[in-house]
Design a protein around this nucleic acid. Sequence first.
DNA 1: TTTATTTTAATAGTAAAACTATTATTCTAA
DNA 2: TTAGAATAATAGTTTTACTATTAAAATAAA
Lengths: 229, 229
Amino acid sequence: MGVRATIKINVNDNIYLRDPEQTQLGKKIISKSIDLIDELGFEDFTFKKLANQISSTEASIYRYFENKHNLLVYLLVWYWSWLEYQIDYQTNNIEDTEKQLKIAIRIIAESLSSHSESHFPHINEAALHRIVVSESSKTYYTKSVDDENKFGFFHSYKSLCKKVANMIKAYNSDYPYAHALTSTMLESAHQQIFFSQHLPSLTELKCTDSETSEIIHYLDQLIFRQIKK
Amino acid sequence: MGVRATIKINVNDNIYLRDPEQTQLGKKIISKSIDLIDELGFEDFTFKKLANQISSTEASIYRYFENKHNLLVYLLVWYWSWLEYQIDYQTNNIEDTEKQLKIAIRIIAESLSSHSESHFPHINEAALHRIVVSESSKTYYTKSVDDENKFGFFHSYKSLCKKVANMIKAYNSDYPYAHALTSTMLESAHQQIFFSQHLPSLTELKCTDSETSEIIHYLDQLIFRQIKK
DNA sequence: TTTATTTTAATAGTAAAACTATTATTCTAA
DNA sequence: TTAGAATAATAGTTTTACTATTAAAATAAA
């Protein structure tokens, strides 16, 4: 595969109290919180349980994150940034905006678990993708969303949305709802996976970690039938 | 306006321990919980605070609902049932499936607050609509979703989805994703309102309680461009 | 009308979760 | 080697979620 650069995803420092990437304990907090939120769900996940898992204490985790909500935001911000990086990387040097859009949709819909090699040793990408599917909307459906938005908690998600919306505008500058359609598609990508697995009468799609062609086809159609020239 | 029948929305009795419609205290629990969840958000809402508001006790509320999650489910089930009733009522005797679909979309997108008269004296329909926008997804993004699905917690939502999906199939029987498109549209209807008000860079739409024509137009286009014959 | 019986609600808790003030330890650099 | 800074652990408090038990009110039977 040749030379591989080290990728570092930078997360807005308003989200944490101490940068978890800078210490061993911090990395263990991130790594184990992904496993534990995936296992228990966000509601049953507590700093106490996480502390037990990493043989540390609640108070030590509180020195990194103000509360478990901000830890979840951290994980999501990291995920959206990583997604945007991949879209940048894989659409580089591709002129055709239709091809660009299809690449972006594939990256968004595909479970990271399907990748053969992990880019980050302490991140369980399959578990993180399941967290994105089941927990991501909890980051913004709160009473503090406006304050957190001011602190940049949603910058990476908005940036990702803007990138895809710009592809749509480049494809068809007459379509007036590029951002609305992108956010609809982004949310639908995860919702439909969840529905397929838990409330299957809400969707015809059959989504598994390995079988992603159907959801990709659905999202392709959702986008291109809207923006057809 | 002539004769008006009394409408009673029936909620699956697995969701509550005691039917709140049957007692004065029960009705106060429903009425005040809508106001309080709207005001505080679901995370900061507690049975203790609700008990204070209605001059009762936590333990008394626990005799009606096992926990606050089930109370939220109750409110949402009530809402989806009421929505489906309205769609039934307003599409009755209309043959044209395109017209039927447009009526359904309008009812789904429109804030109930825009109605001039309330059908249920103890239900603040404007507040309930805001709860639907901000809190509804929390009813199913849980680890217990499969168990709750077996108990029929999502029956009314699935039934609403099926009704609209059947309209889509009647309009164009060749479209293969009627349910997926309907659930995408249903979720988008509330998401886009939330984004418009809190994360406006994610959407071009401008949604307010009184101004609903733009979201209706967006959803109309989302559906009909997909299913065009 | 009085007394059982049942229904309904309040009292008074416990257990766990969320969070914090303070102390102890480890690391770094003079 | 030791002072100062950085980091983590101890030991709490407060709040939330939930429940066992008791009390009161309503209804029905005698």
